[in-house]
Amino acid sequence: MIRKFAAILLLAGIASIFMGLLFTYEPDAELNTTARYYAERTAADIGATNIVTAIVVTYRGLDTLGEVTVLFLTAAIVGLVLAHGRRRTSDKRRLAPVGELLATGSRFLAPLIILLGVYVFANGHLTPGGGFQGGAIIASGVLLILLADPCRCLSHRVIDTVESVSGLFYVGIAILGIVLAGGFLDSHLLPRGELGALFSAGAIPLIYALIGLKVGAEFSSILAHLSETEEL
């Protein structure tokens, strides 16, 4: 009881701070300096039509590299925590067979879902979407395969290879930027191209595709590890 009272008291304090923030909030009428820089310069400098993509991949590319690293660490720790002390049960447990509908449907749908993921990250510099969204969609396709066939252990080797190869190429392109262009992760490695074309915006489509593959592999590895945990 006293715990609940203390919690409510604390929340009332936070709520009063939030109220103060909310009632004194004035929406900006003009873009601030940073946003104006991005809005004015993206089309000419980067050549991407989606300004969010230009920020994520080029202007703030180092943050994205850090984010992908954090995600990699998460996947590794989840694997470590769950693999520890896992007993190898050889008997295929008495799982109820999945329905015919799910088995056939997943065989038909999983490649299409993965194709949609590839489409989303290949067009990341033109339309809403990009590596993170595309990677999550690819992981949803892997999830469907996992649900349809729980007995088949998904090959961790394939997932790990995709993950490390795309990570290696991502860092490789970033370092090539120092040598051939303006700096680390500079997207002017490749020609800027025509605004709005599929092959434009320098190295952004390439980098975002690698991010998409890496993120998709990391999410898939987290899902596969969690789905292979033992029944307690």
Binding site: N50, V52, T53, V120, P128, G129, G130, F132, Q133, A136, I137, A139, S140, L143, F219, L223
Partner: peptide
């Protein structure tokens, strides 16, 4: 962009 991410990750993968 945020809407796509939230729909795919926040409501899809996290729930699973």
């Amino acid at each position: 962009d945020v809407a796509m991410t939230e729909a795919a990750i926040g409501s899809g993968l996290t729930t699973f």
